[in-house]
């Protein structure tokens, strides 16, 4: 651990302030709690909200996994994992099952999360109504009155124009029948995983200074219409590495003629399946 800094970098008073915000966020599912976000030694927009949440909950007994785009080895995930290894001296892992805390940017792991785990999302823009109404005073009023008609109008305009809801990620949800919430920029493929998730989901937006939460087992409904029900994307292809036909696939351009291949975005899930397959072949 690096000298001169407190455990997990943040001072105790800051942690208390963030912990109070996390508790209120958990008590009011989907509501964005303002908090006095601190400057972190990593840039705003690069996960400072998630880092502050993780730093405030993490203890010596925890095992941390950090992913970006589903992968443990993307540079920003490596950088954040190193930050906690240095400032908190905690165990880290790439295995979803072994982690007690998973900090993520843009994905929910394919391996189902279990009771007792905490998933921490890095959030760039927490306000689901922001593209419809840039003013905080106004969006706050809309949340206070659950006045979400404008969002339905926007989705309906999509249908009129494109024949479907033209939102592929950060697809808006309603939490416990009350608060409209951004699930962070996860693909809508991951939205159903949030519904009644056994793990606790915490969302941190550092630059925008908001924390929100979805407690375990809480209903999370993706917005839709009766005649245009919510649907997730699927692929005709399978993962070229592990053969999975049910995971979120990244499309990779493999040569100058533009040939593509598809591989799992969740590197731990993919390598686990490959290990199992090679084990079966060896046996």
């Amino acid at each position: 651990m690096i000298a001169g800094y407190n455990f997990a970098y943040l001072d105790e008073q800051t942690k208390r302030m963030i912990r109070r915000a996390i508790l209120k966020a958990t008590a009011i599912p989907g509501y964005q709690v303002p908090f006095a976000s601190r400057e972190m030694p990593l840039p705003y927009g690069w996960g400072t909200g998630g880092i502050q949440v993780t730093a405030s909950i993490i203890g010596r007994g925890d095992t941390l996994k950090v992913i970006d785009q589903g992968a443990d080895d993307t540079t920003n995930a490596v950088s954040i994992r190193r930050f906690f290894a240095r400032t908190a001296g905690v165990r880290t892992t790439e295995r979803t099952r072994e982690a007690s805390i998973i900090q993520t940017r843009h994905r929910i792991p394919e391996t189902p999360l279990r009771e007792g785990q905490i998933i921490v999302f890095q959030v760039p823009i927490p306000e689901p109504l922001r593209w419809l109404e840039p003013r905080e005073r106004e969006t706050r009023r809309m949340h206070a009155h659950a006045d979400y008609g404008a969002m339905y109008v926007k989705l309906y305009e999509d249908i009129a124009r494109y024949g479907r809801i033209a939102t592929g990620y950060d697809y808006p949800v309603v939490v416990n029948g009350r608060y409209l919430m951004r699930p962070s920029p996860i693909p809508k493929f991951d939205n159903p995983k949030l519904d009644r998730l056994p793990a606790l989901a915490l969302f941190g937006a550092g630059r925008e200074k908001r924390i929100y939460a979805v407690p375990p087992h809480t209903p999370v409904k993706s917005l839709d219409f009766e005649d245009h029900p919510f649907r997730v994307e699927s692929w005709r292809e399978r993962c070229a590495l592990c053969g999975s036909g049910s995971s979120f696939l990244d499309e990779i351009v493999v040569d100058d003629s533009g040939r593509r291949m598809f591989v799992c975005s969740d590197t731990d899930y993919c390598s686990g399946r490959r290990a199992k397959r090679s084990g079966a072949e060896a046996a």
Binding site: E39, P43, Y44, G45, W46, T48, D68, Q69, G70, T74, N76, R105, H106, R107, P124, R164, A166, T167, G168, Y169, D170, P185, I186, P187, K188, F189, R207, E233, F248, L249, D250, E251, S265
Partner: peptide
Amino acid sequence: NVEASGFVQHLKLPHYVDFQSELNL
């Protein structure tokens, strides 16, 4: 400018999962 610089520059972080969703769409 610390907030602005961070958020503008975060666009160089990988966004390929979101982009994949947009491609599909």
